[in-house]
Simulated assay, not measured.
Amino acid sequence: MPADDPAAAVTAHDLEVLSAQLGRTPRGVVGIAARCACGRPLVVRTAPRLENGTPFPTTFYLTHPGAVAAASTLEANGVMKEMTDRLAEDDGLAAAYRRAHEHYLAQRAALGHVEEIDGISAGGMPTRVKCLHVLVGHSLAAGPGVNPLGDEALARVRGVWRPDRCTC
């Protein structure tokens, strides 16, 4: 979702929903990067440096409990290792994943430069998969075709959770 998209704006209601979703006060939220079919946040866009000065590389933070649970289930089932292994074997996939990494870095750079995390995206990109929550969040925020492994993770959870069907 483009930063100037009205749906990206964060409202007081969004912050209340995010607090309930996360079980804590949300930090560094600068926009809603993707919304549920009902309008609640799915993914937040987060500042690269939190209010307390901590560098924060996770620009697209998955918040929706159903999506978080679905990504956690994939992780528990060993999908991250399988995906990482495929990156070493499939040059096309590795190139597409590197482009996803570069997209992620560009999206974060638009929010500001933080030296401590320069060149570091999130989720293990560009050489491994270490967090499907990040990859799913990136795919939901950027749309299909930007992060191939995030898109794949979304396809794998479709029978359990879908972004186009409200489960809030």
Rank of each mutant, 00 (worst) to 15 (best):
A69D: 13
G66D: 05
C38Y: 03
A70G: 12
A70P: 12
A110Q: 14
L42N: 02
A110C: 10
M80W: 00
G92S: 11
D90Y: 05
A70S: 13
T84E: 02
A88W: 11
G112S: 09
R49Q: 12
R45Q: 13
A94K: 13
M83A: 05
R45I: 06
P48L: 04
A67W: 01
R99I: 02
L105S: 00
T58V: 15
R45F: 06
G39W: 09
R99H: 08
F56S: 11
N52R: 13
R108W: 08
E51L: 12
G31D: 07
A34Y: 08
A67E: 01
Y97F: 15
A95K: 13
L105H: 02
M83H: 02
D91H: 14
T59S: 05
F60H: 09
R98F: 01
L62M: 10
E75H: 03
G78A: 11
R40M: 11
R40V: 10
V79R: 14
G112I: 07
R86C: 03
H101W: 13
T59I: 11
A100L: 10
L87G: 00
A47D: 10
A70I: 13
E75S: 06
D85H: 08
R49H: 03
G66F: 10
E75M: 12
A106N: 11
G92M: 04
E102I: 05
R98C: 00
R40W: 10
L50C: 06
A71D: 02
A33I: 04
L87W: 02
T46H: 00
A95E: 13
G53R: 12
T54S: 13
T84F: 03
V68A: 04
L105I: 14
L105K: 02
T59W: 03
G112H: 09
F60W: 12
I32R: 00
D90F: 08
A76T: 15
V79K: 07
F56I: 03
N52E: 15
H103K: 06
